[in-house]
Amino acid sequence: MEKESKNYTTISIPTPLAKKIKERIKGTGFTSLSSYVTYVLREIISSDREENEEAFTKEDEEKVRDRLRALGYLE
């Protein structure tokens, strides 16, 4: 990534760590330090498995429940 691109930014990590990672990704599908670090960071950022609570109003909820009952999906 010699060329400056608005899609990428440069970050600094300690050189010994970079060396270790380079060793580690030899023979794997990762073609560069950057692609490996991107992969790991994406993995970490998405592992935030915070529960998602649907913002249902009471009225909404009743409507959905009624329809699911009418169609036989709920008893």
């Binding site: 649907e54 249902f56 909820e61 959905v64 429940r65 329809r67 699911l68 169609l71 709920l74």
Partner: peptide, 16 residues
């Protein structure tokens, strides 16, 4: 349409 659920409905259904 009786087989046609939206994500809002399936999410509610799975929770129930």
């Amino acid at each position: 349409d009786k087989y046609n659920l939206t994500p809002k409905e399936t999410r509610f259904l799975f929770k129930e």
